Simulated assay, not measured.
Amino acid sequence: MLWLRKIRIILLFFHQKCYDVQIETEGSGMTSNLQNRGVFSSPGTFSSEHLPLYCELAGIIESNPRFLIDRVYYPGYVVMFVAEGKFFAEQFDILHRMQAGDVMLMDLHEKHRYGSDPDDPCRLLWFHFTGRTAREIFSLVHDAAGPLLHVEDHWLPDRLEEIVTTYREGGTSRFYTTSILAYEVLIRMIQISDTGDRTLSDPRAEELVKTVTRYIETHMDSAIALKELAGAVNLSIYHFSRYFKACTGTSPMAYVLLKKIEKARYELLYSSKSIGQIAASLGFSDQSHLWRTFRQITGMSPGMLRKRST
């Protein structure tokens, strides 16, 4: 799998960097104020200089009905797992209502808001991560898995508990240990998405995707523009693009191409239309345009697929 291979390459680089540097003893990295809130922090100097991705903060929120974060910006990314109770997270005007077993990946550089449900306060396991490769890793995971997943087993929450426990116990090895655990959690999120556990928790998000899909299906013969899709759901191009990608993990125009190639594949297998006719019926500029796009997405040419089916 391409996404997993890319992350493993970065992880290999991470291990090489770990063994190339000398561990320096630093303070515990925990302030009494943070400890009182179940939050443990990683010292910035060593981690930022030597680790391409590291946990900046990690913690557990224990059934606090008043827990609420409402920020315009924070320099990092967060993974949050709801172990018990209910939780909500809001970004790009999308409200996710979460319950036990849900895990959220969020870019904190963008305006965000999240907190516990006062009527059913949650137990939340979480960690912030940052570093030189953090943005790339975030993009890989988000594109593959989206912002919200549901997990049934205990593997992922156990790793999150281990991150918090490692910081609580201290020791210089915690820098490496928690960074490796963070990589493992992010890779696991991609693996979970491949099993079909991905979910859209906001009914508005589901309706938006359905509306866009219907529009694409009824305009297959035209070169669909981004502004047309945004207009179909009454959003600006900017907000529509961000909203759609947050819902699906892919861009609107990439989704259009996927739907058209899906239709082209059906026509190649089950109709007698020529490749040129199929290209025209799907709004491609010419046969070559369809050929290039089809090969890029499926790994084979239209002619090769048709030949294999006969």
Score class of each variant (00 low, 15 high):
Arg135Gln: 12
Phe40Gly: 01
Leu290Trp: 10
Arg97Tyr: 09
Leu268Asn: 04
Leu11Phe: 15
His109Glu: 09
Gln296Ile: 04
His96Arg: 14
Gly146Glu: 06
Asp107Phe: 13
Tyr270Ile: 03
Leu140Thr: 04
Glu62Pro: 00
Leu124Gly: 01
Glu184Val: 07
Glu206Asp: 03
Thr213Asp: 06
Ser28Cys: 07
Thr195Asn: 07
Phe294Ala: 10
Leu305Lys: 05
Asp117Arg: 11
Ala279Ser: 12
Ser251His: 05
His112Ala: 05
Gly27Lys: 07
Ile9Lys: 13
Tyr183His: 11
Gln296Ser: 15
Asp221Val: 05
Glu152Met: 11
Phe87Arg: 01
His109Thr: 13
Ser41Leu: 09
Lys6Asp: 06
Met98Asn: 09
Leu181Cys: 07
Glu217Ala: 14
Gln16Cys: 12
Leu11His: 06
Asp20Ile: 01
Ser271Asn: 07
Glu26Ile: 12
Leu258Val: 07
Lys227Pro: 00
Ala134Leu: 09
Phe127Ala: 02
Lys259Thr: 03
Asp158Leu: 15
Ile187His: 00
Leu181Thr: 02
Leu68Tyr: 11
Ile60Leu: 15
Ala182Val: 05
Thr25His: 11
Ala182Glu: 02
Pro43Gly: 01
Lys210Asn: 07
Lys6Gln: 13
Leu125His: 10
Leu258Met: 14
Ser193Thr: 02
His96Glu: 13
Met189Gly: 02
Ile180Gln: 10
Tyr73Gln: 03
Lys111His: 10
Gly170Tyr: 08
Tyr243Ile: 02
Ser241Arg: 11
Val82Ser: 05
Ser274Ile: 06
Val209Ala: 13
Ser201Val: 09
Asp102His: 15
Leu53Cys: 08
Ala58Met: 11
Arg135Pro: 00
Asp194Asn: 12
Leu105Phe: 07
Asp197Ser: 15
Gly76Met: 07
Ile190Lys: 05
Thr177His: 08
His96Trp: 12
Glu228Phe: 12
Ala232Trp: 06
Asn64Met: 06
Gln277Ala: 15
Lys260Gly: 04
Gly249Ala: 09
Glu184Lys: 14
Tyr215His: 10
Tyr54Ala: 08
Tyr114Phe: 15
Gln296Trp: 04
Ala280Ile: 04
Gln16Trp: 06
Ser285Ala: 15
Leu208Gly: 01
Asn234Phe: 14
Gly38Ile: 05
Glu84Met: 07
Leu269Gln: 10
Gly29Leu: 07
His50Gln: 04
Ile275Lys: 10
Phe88Tyr: 12
Glu206Thr: 14
Leu51Thr: 01
Ile278Asn: 05
Val21Lys: 13
Gly29Tyr: 09
Gly101Ile: 06
